[in-house]
C-alpha cells in the first residue's frame, strides 16, 4: 500500500459518501444519473465476485472495503430508483447504458490476461468503470448545470482514479508491478474528467456554480 493508493481509496469512499449524503439530506436525486450509479454497482459486483464465491471471514480491511463499496452503491441505486424515484430526472438521464455495457463486455472477452470467468468479469468491470461516468457527464451537459455538492462528488470520483495512476507509477518504479489493463482503462477514465476538472478548478473553487454552455 502506498500513499497514492490510500488517498485514492479515501477519495473514492468520500465520493460515495458525498453522493449518499446529498441524496439523503436533500431527499432528492435531481442532477444525479441513476444509470451511472447502476453501472458502478455492476462494476463492484463483477469485480468483487470473489466475496460471494469463497466468502472468507472479514479478516482484513480490503474485504470490508469491498463490502462497503457494494452495499453503498446498491443502497444509492435503491435511493434513486425507489425511495426518491419521484425526483429522478429520467428525461435527462438518457444516455443508452447498453452502448457502454456491450462494448465493455465484448472487449473484455477479446483483451484480457487470461480467458477464465473470474478474470473476464474483472476485466469487464475495469473497462465498464472507465466509461461508467459518461451518463452522469451527459446528464450535466443536458441540464447545463450541476449542483455544487454534485460537483464535489464528481471531483472526488475523478480524483480517485487519477490518484491510482500515481499509485501505478509508484508501483512500476518501486515494485516493478504493472497491470496494463487497469492502467490503460484508468488513464482513459481520468481523461474523461479533464474538462470537468477544468470547470471545477476554475469555477467551483471560486464559489461559483458550474454552468455549462447550453
Amino acid at each position: 500500500m502506498n500513499i497514492f493508493r490510500l488517498f485514492g481509496d479515501l477519495s473514492h469512499l468520500a465520493a460515495i459518501a458525498i453522493l449518499l449524503l446529498k441524496i439523503w439530506k436533500t431527499r432528492s436525486c435531481a442532477g444525479v444519473s441513476g444509470k451511472t450509479q447502476l453501472l458502478f454497482a455492476v462494476c463492484f459486483i463483477t469485480r468483487y465476485i470473489d466475496l460471494f464465491l469463497h466468502f472468507v471471514s472479514l479478516y482484513n480491511t480490503e474485504k470490508v472495503m469491498k463490502l462497503i463499496y457494494i452495499s453503498a452503491s446498491v443502497f444509492t441505486c435503491y435511493l434513486i430508483f425507489f425511495k426518491f424515484k419521484a425526483t429522478y430526472d429520467g428525461n435527462h438521464d438518457s444516455m443508452r447504458a447498453e452502448f457502454l455495457i456491450v462494448p465493455a463486455a465484448g472487449l473484455a472477452c477479446l483483451i484480457n490476461t487470461k480467458f477464465d470467468a473470474i478474470e473476464i468479469l474483472w476485466t469487464f468491470s475495469i473497462y465498464l468503470e472507465a466509461v461508467a461516468i459518461l451518463p452522469q457527464l451527459f446528464l450535466i451537459s443536458k441540464t447545463g448545470e450541476a449542483e455544487t455538492i454534485t460537483s464535489h462528488y464528481l471531483f472526488a470520483q475523478g480524483s480517485y482514479r487519477a490518484l491510482y495512476i500515481l499509485n501505478w507509477i509508484y508501483r512500476y518504479h518501486y515494485e516493478s508491478h504493472v497491470d496494463t489493463i487497469a492502467i490503460v482503462a484508468g488513464v482513459v477514465q481520468t481523461i474523461l474528467y479533464c474538462d470537468f476538472f477544468y470547470l471545477y478548478i476554475t469555477k467551483v473553487v471560486k464559489g461559483q456554480k458550474i454552468v455549462l454552455p447550453a
Partner: peptide
C-alpha cells in the same frame, strides 16, 4: 521482468 500478480487493488 514485470510481475503481474493477482489483481491486488480495489
Amino acid at each position: 521482468q514485470f510481475t503481474i500478480k493477482d489483481h491486488d487493488e480495489l
